[in-house]
Design a protein around this nucleic acid. Sequence first.
DNA 1: TAGCCAAACCTGTATGCTCCTGTCTAGTCT
DNA 2: AGACTAGACAGGAGCATACAGGTTTGGCTA
Lengths: 235, 235
Amino acid sequence: MTKPAAQSKSERIASLLEAEIRSGQLQDGSALSSENCLVSRFAVSRTTVRKSLGILAEKGLIRTKMGIGSFVTYAGNVIDSGPGWSLALSSAGIRMETRILRIARLGMDLEVPVPLAGEMLAVDRLRFRTETGRGMSLERARVPWRAEFAALLEDGLDGGSLNRTLAARGLVPASGEEWANVLPSLGAEDAALLGLPEATPMLRLRRLTRDTAGQPVEFVESLLDPELFGLHMRF
Amino acid sequence: MTKPAAQSKSERIASLLEAEIRSGQLQDGSALSSENCLVSRFAVSRTTVRKSLGILAEKGLIRTKMGIGSFVTYAGNVIDSGPGWSLALSSAGIRMETRILRIARLGMDLEVPVPLAGEMLAVDRLRFRTETGRGMSLERARVPWRAEFAALLEDGLDGGSLNRTLAARGLVPASGEEWANVLPSLGAEDAALLGLPEATPMLRLRRLTRDTAGQPVEFVESLLDPELFGLHMRF
DNA sequence: TAGCCAAACCTGTATGCTCCTGTCTAGTCT
DNA sequence: AGACTAGACAGGAGCATACAGGTTTGGCTA
């Protein structure tokens, strides 16, 4: 996790800011100082500061909005923080790992609240606690199939990240929809995968993102252990 | 050095107003406050308020008439909402009634994700289906006690609406936070109130609103039948 | 009492300013 | 050549202010 000394100034500043974020000094949703403030604080040029912020943004730690500023989107126990809600762990300090269950090409197999069919690139992921090995969440992502995806079936995702893989192919979400509800009872197969009792109620989160043309980019269904996850939003 | 802001002000105000519309606090056809009133309520410039109203107008939630004002043009089957999250009934056309269980003065009795204590005005409400009498949701609202609330304990709420009661006393929300999670099992008392099996998993929604000074205005905990309710948001 | 008008609201529109991010260019240092 | 600096310029967000035009209302007048 923590790196040895970074060589370049921009990397050093990035890891310094990252430390502040991860330590909780800068909480989720709070604003970073403006680029000009950081310029004077670190006594470097704005170019360097921007490079640092770029590094943090790519890691998903911050999000920057034109004309407003940069904002923390990670607070130690916040797993995923998009526009609107953020998915938060109920208790902090949980270490976890992610396992990719499969990358495959198949027809649409999930129930979606809006019309979405055809061939899909399917990526199923399991998130589990490092200590106990107990499953925390099950995520099934579906992306409308493209010929260029063929290589992924063997080579895997770019850097293990589906988002980066999609972004590298020009698939960037511009808008989207999201549904959250309670799945009263976990099915047998999923229960086995997660290592949870079969009848456990789960928090189900479904998100459909679209590109600027309104075409579907990605559909993700997440089944989340309700004891560990909650949704949070500020307004 | 600079002011913290989670997202752009205009978007934040728009989602707050959207929440009030979708929750039914502002019913179809009713007028919004004038732009100048909103300016002072949210402590922003009129430009920002107008941008927010523009967002709502584009969504078709309001329509504004020159020289008169803005009016709600939305009458959905959505019965409660968060900002962005709209809490939608799974099936439309359900007729329901609301019963006020109690209006009382008591110490803080609910678990809140943020510090909030002291004497409270408590309003507990039950929403149930007209046909079957089966409970749909249980809402517990808590407002920091004020001397002027004393009369409410006997006279009830202004027009049966807590929000109207609060607004009449200058308590208007300017920002807030919301949490959603799964309550794995309904307690015995609440189950009896709702007429549901004791072990039913419920969708729990908690919202804390604050005024412009950041002081808590209202905390509401809603327990919702997961078969009837889900969260939905667009971004 | 009927009619009219002005004041007081309201929305629509425009301008100038500040501070922010996005982008580009040219030069310096190692 | 790569990392960094120092500018300049655009465009977005927001604030403050002013002014034009629509709507309502109440008071004044005939």
